[in-house]
């Protein structure tokens, strides 16, 4: 299935609170068995990660960060799980992170993001080629809205960055409009976009991005910085 209704009561697993989340299952490599705790926490989230292409490319670039993809579609999530297991197997003897720093979870980020992450926990949030929800009355289902941005601001630390990319101009304008309006975000300029390696990876590495590339479509990008609370 290409779409999933973010409003319905899916049978989802989510922790009662961020303290209830057992991250050791997702990143066993970073679990300190002696002290019984994680020695790193997730700081990068890819919301609606799809087939996981972005995470796979981010993994070696950010060896000191844990990266989590969230995806609402069951089959897609299963695929990404298998993909990561395979990648970890194939790269067992490599010097790099061996893809131990990425994983995926099935979840509804629009409802439950604060159940997973503490206040100010994240450094980067990616929204790559989100569902455009063209119909007017479906606009609340879009991943960027005025009201949801407050939740993203809550889990992002000061100076943290929201990355957006889409091939749908209408959706791009929508996201830019709402991010511009939100008092806790500041638009980053083209100089940033040119020099930031995440922007480059996001543009070329996701499956959706490659598809747009093949079809010679346009890609629209904007990044925003989390401002301090006034």
């Amino acid at each position: 299935r290409a779409h999933s209704n973010p409003f319905s009561d899916h049978r989802l697993e989510y922790p009662i609170s961020p303290n209830h989340m057992d991250w050791s299952k997702f990143y066993p490599y970073y679990y300190d068995e002696i002290n019984n705790k994680m020695n790193k926490q997730v700081t990068i989230a890819d919301i609606g990660c799809g087939f996981g292409g972005l995470m796979v490319d981010l993994s070696p670039e950010f060896p000191n960060n844990l990266i989590l993809g969230m995806e609402i579609r069951v089959q897609v999530t299963n695929y990404v799980e298998d993909r990561i297991i395979a990648l970890r197997q194939q790269n067992l003897n490599n010097d790099s992170t061996n893809y131990q720093n990425i994983n995926v979870i099935r979840g509804n980020a629009m409802k439950f993001l604060p159940n997973f992450f503490q206040k100010s926990q994240l450094e980067k949030i990616f929204f790559c080629f989100p569902d455009p929800h063209f119909k007017q009355r479906k606009h609340k289902a879009r991943i960027v809205t005025n009201t949801l941005l407050s939740e993203y601001a809550y889990v992002l630390k000061e100076g943290g960055i929201i990355y957006t990319i889409t091939d749908v101009l209408d959706l791009h304008e929508w996201m830019v409009k709402h991010l511009d309006q939100h008092p806790l975000f500041e638009r980053l300029d083209e100089v940033f976009e040119k020099n930031d390696k995440c922007v480059e990876i996001m543009t070329y590495s996701t499956e959706e991005g490659k598809k747009v590339e093949r079809n010679k479509g346009q890609k629209y990008i904007k990044c925003y910085k989390r401002l301090p609370n006034p």
Binding site: S17, P18, H20, P114, K119, P183, L184
Partner: peptide, 22 residues
Amino acid sequence: DEHIRISKFPSSFIIDKFLFGH
């Protein structure tokens, strides 16, 4: 969905905390 959300008022774009447990 079990959330108790506490935001500032009227600057409600600043979420102060959640009370988790339900």
